[in-house]
Amino acid sequence: MDTNKTYFITGAAGFIGFYLSKKLLEQGCKVIGIDNLNDYYDVNLKYNRLDQLKPLDNFTFIEGDISNKEAVTNVFEKYKPNIVVNLAAQAGVRYSIENPDVYIQSNVIGFYNILEACRHYPVDHLVYASSSSVYGANKKVPFEESDFVDTPVSLYASTKKSNELMAYTYSHLYKFPATGLRFFTVYGPMGRPDMAYFGFTDKYFNRESIKIFNNGDFENDLYRDFTYIDDIVEGIERLLSNPPTGGKTVPHKVFNIGNNNPEKLMVFIETLEKALSNSLGREVQFEKVFEPIKPGDVPATYASTDQLQKAVGFKPTTSIEEGLQQFADWYVEYYKVK
């Protein structure tokens, strides 16, 4: 990494933002982080992540919201970042059905403010989070970046698709390089409690049953491309210093970052039970309740990672056995459960 450059990371107290900031800081980079520390999930987890970042040299934290244009402009004016990584977003497919306003605020207006700032304070590279949800209910697998993505099935997916369109337009008009990353079900220690694997674990220790939205149909179970956090961070890190070049084309590219190895949801759950059993030294079994698939959910996510491999020679490698064991060990330690 170029340690002479200043990195501006939005959503720095978030799951991916925290791990990326930590990795860059450990390499001696200067990182400016912003986060609004909202209470969409347990804020203590966000403070805990920040507590690990604050002692590191070259880290500046700003509590602020990217949907506040002035807050964003002030960061660019004061710190003049060279590379911007936009990871701040209102996440979650199901929550977008209950609370659409926050998705437009954060994911559309917030991202517009970032683009405007990159336009007025030119940057070397803008990297931003998109999502595998842009593929909607595509039947063709694996999902490739060239696939048709005009049929989103949730507002969250629509906001992420709009980010890709907005970034393309700004790259075209103002010639700054931008790279969109379609993340596929990211998991790991200190992850997001709203994600299924984390929620299942919480419910087990609260002696509650878990809901599985696949109608109990094991033949046609939901498939997910689960991607371990370290793989996500390495993929981002490699792309940071490889901005798309212009020439006759627009300097904008989109990449899948997924495991290229989808797992049945039931296999994932069994692996999580085994990992928790290992961490606790006793057998763990979830009590399961099967329900119909929820609106906005898609039956399968499966990433083709050929483009990423071609661009930066990287393909995620962490197995769910290894990744879920890391999560289970962290969870048992962090929450002091027995």
Rank of each mutant, 00 (worst) to 15 (best):
residue 1 M to V: 07
residue 4 N to Q: 15
residue 5 K to M: 12
residue 6 T to M: 11
residue 8 F to Y: 14
residue 10 T to A: 10
residue 14 G to R: 05
residue 14 G to S: 06
residue 20 L to H: 01
residue 21 S to V: 04
residue 22 K to D: 00
residue 26 E to Q: 09
residue 26 E to H: 00
residue 26 E to T: 08
residue 27 Q to T: 04
residue 30 K to P: 04
residue 31 V to N: 07
residue 31 V to A: 07
residue 41 Y to R: 10
residue 44 N to R: 05
residue 45 L to W: 12
residue 49 R to Y: 01
residue 56 L to S: 05
residue 56 L to C: 13
residue 58 N to E: 03
residue 59 F to S: 06
residue 61 F to P: 06
residue 62 I to F: 13
residue 65 D to F: 12
residue 65 D to W: 13
residue 67 S to W: 06
residue 70 E to R: 15
residue 71 A to F: 00
residue 75 V to T: 04
residue 76 F to P: 07
residue 83 I to N: 02
residue 85 V to E: 12
residue 87 L to S: 11
residue 91 A to H: 00
residue 93 V to L: 15
residue 96 S to A: 15
residue 99 N to Q: 12
residue 99 N to H: 10
residue 102 V to K: 10
residue 103 Y to C: 08
residue 105 Q to I: 00
residue 105 Q to W: 01
residue 107 N to M: 09
residue 107 N to Y: 07
residue 111 F to E: 08
residue 114 I to V: 13
residue 116 E to T: 11
residue 121 Y to M: 04
residue 121 Y to E: 01
residue 122 P to V: 09
residue 123 V to K: 01
residue 124 D to V: 13
residue 124 D to N: 15
residue 126 L to Y: 03
residue 128 Y to F: 14
residue 132 S to G: 10
residue 135 Y to T: 03
residue 137 A to G: 09
residue 137 A to Y: 07
residue 142 P to S: 09
residue 142 P to C: 11
residue 146 S to I: 09
residue 147 D to G: 12
residue 151 T to I: 06
residue 151 T to K: 15
residue 153 V to A: 04
residue 154 S to F: 13
residue 157 A to R: 08
residue 158 S to D: 11
residue 158 S to I: 04
residue 166 M to W: 03
residue 167 A to K: 07
residue 169 T to H: 13
residue 170 Y to D: 03
residue 171 S to I: 02
residue 172 H to Y: 13
residue 173 L to M: 13
residue 177 P to L: 03
residue 178 A to C: 14
residue 181 L to H: 04
residue 183 F to H: 02
residue 186 V to I: 12
residue 188 G to T: 01
residue 190 M to Q: 06
residue 192 R to E: 14
residue 198 F to K: 07
residue 198 F to T: 01
residue 199 G to W: 02
residue 204 Y to H: 12
residue 205 F to W: 08
residue 205 F to I: 08
residue 221 D to A: 14
residue 222 L to E: 00
residue 223 Y to G: 05
residue 224 R to V: 10
residue 225 D to V: 00
residue 228 Y to F: 15
residue 231 D to Q: 10
residue 231 D to W: 11
residue 233 V to I: 15
residue 233 V to F: 07
residue 239 L to P: 02
residue 243 P to H: 09
residue 244 P to Y: 04
residue 251 P to Y: 05
residue 251 P to L: 07
residue 254 V to A: 10
residue 255 F to P: 02
residue 256 N to Y: 08
residue 256 N to P: 10
residue 258 G to E: 07
residue 262 P to G: 03
residue 265 L to M: 08
residue 267 V to P: 01
residue 271 T to E: 09
residue 272 L to T: 11
residue 272 L to G: 04
residue 272 L to H: 08
residue 276 L to T: 01
residue 279 S to K: 00
residue 289 V to W: 00
residue 292 P to A: 01
residue 293 I to C: 04
residue 293 I to W: 03
residue 295 P to H: 03
residue 297 D to W: 02
residue 298 V to M: 10
residue 300 A to E: 15
residue 303 A to I: 02
residue 306 D to N: 14
residue 306 D to L: 13
residue 310 K to N: 08
residue 311 A to M: 10
residue 312 V to R: 05
residue 317 T to A: 12
residue 318 T to F: 05
residue 323 G to E: 11
residue 335 Y to Q: 06
residue 336 K to V: 08
